[in-house]
């Protein structure tokens, strides 16, 4: 039996690069202008999975991603870098899911891949920064979680030893398998795309994507069945729709406010001596500095 590693990866809007062109005139973010990217820490997770695969006999890496049809890009990016296979969990019924509903759907997909040894995800996704889906999926699967993994130390088919990054230090922990790891950004960066794999998987598509292609891929896919990216819907997962989407999400968004730079009058000073001395005196007089 092979050592099966399931990687959880998410496609996210690139919130780290909100440049001037991504701001609307009112100072709020124009989300449509943000490119969709592979969540950075999920790339660290993929790398850790690939590293473990290289050190363990007969291991395989399967990537799961949940999102709209365009998130198939995550699967392609993963196989270009060395993953063996990927599944896209996609269904309109997932829309509006909070972390609890998301972890429910993901845990069902992971169960479909049983028996598995490891589940590895990034610590958190940059669009929400909650870091909740990993631990919540581990709870639903009834397996231990090791959060903030920074370095893979060793593994057998029964246990794994991992170095964790904490706020003020490190910890080396050993857990029985199966287990779930969440990977910290301080872990090694992901290897680049492999040219051979890029050629091999260039035409990998989901059925949904094929329907939108003008070219007929039937023959190609018959010859190379590995090009097909499977899509899993609510029905494929046998999910209870009540536990998904808005109805399965205990948290509700009451209000969203766009952050607008506060327009407060700033007092402009120069580096001239009188300006600096005046400011220091004012700070001393108002007891802000002693």
């Amino acid at each position: 039996m092979s050592f099966r590693i399931v990687v959880l990866a998410k496609q996210v809007p690139d919130t780290r690069n909100v440049g001037k062109d991504a701001m609307k005139a009112d100072g709020t973010v124009n989300r449509a202008a943000l490119p969709a990217i592979y969540n950075p820490e999920d790339l660290n997770a993929l790398e850790m999975a690939l590293e473990i695969k290289s050190k363990i006999k007969d291991a395989e890496v399967i990537v799961l991603t949940m999102g709209p049809p365009r998130a198939a890009e995550i699967i392609r990016e993963s196989v270009y870098r060395g993953a063996d296979k990927g599944y896209l969990i996609t269904d309109r019924k997932f829309a509006g899911s909070d972390t609890l509903a998301t972890s429910y759907a993901i845990s069902l997909a992971i169960k479909k891949l049983a028996p598995y040894h490891l589940v590895i995800s990034g610590r958190q996704a940059i669009d929400g920064d909650t870091a909740q889906v990993g631990p919540q999926a581990a709870e639903k699967l009834g397996i231990p979680q090791i959060t903030y993994a920074e370095e893979f130390i060793s593994a057998t088919d029964k246990d794994i030893t991992i170095k964790r990054r904490l706020e003020r230090g490190i910890e080396v922990v050993k857990t029985p398998l199966p287990a779930l790891l969440t990977v910290h950004s301080s872990a090694p960066d992901c290897r680049p795309r492999n040219a051979k794999l890029l050629m091999r998987y260039k035409y990998a598509r989901t059925l949904t994507e094929l329907q939108e292609e003008t070219r007929d891929y039937t023959e190609l896919f018959d010859k190379r069945p590995y090009l097909q990216i499977d899509e899993w819907t609510v029905a494929d997962l046998n999910a209870d729709v009540e536990l998904l989407g808005l109805s399965g999400s205990p948290t509700k968004v009451k209000k969203i406010e766009n952050v607008v730079l506060q327009q407060k009058e700033t007092i402009l000073l120069t580096s001239a001596d009188k300006d600096i001395e005046g400011l220091i005196k004012e700070l001393i007089d108002s007891h802000i500095i002693g």
Binding site: V29, I126, D129, T251, N258, V259
Partner: peptide, 10 residues
């Protein structure tokens, strides 16, 4: 949320 670009009340 959203990289600090929005403030959400949950």
């Amino acid at each position: 949320a959203f990289g600090g670009n929005i403030i959400a009340t949950i």
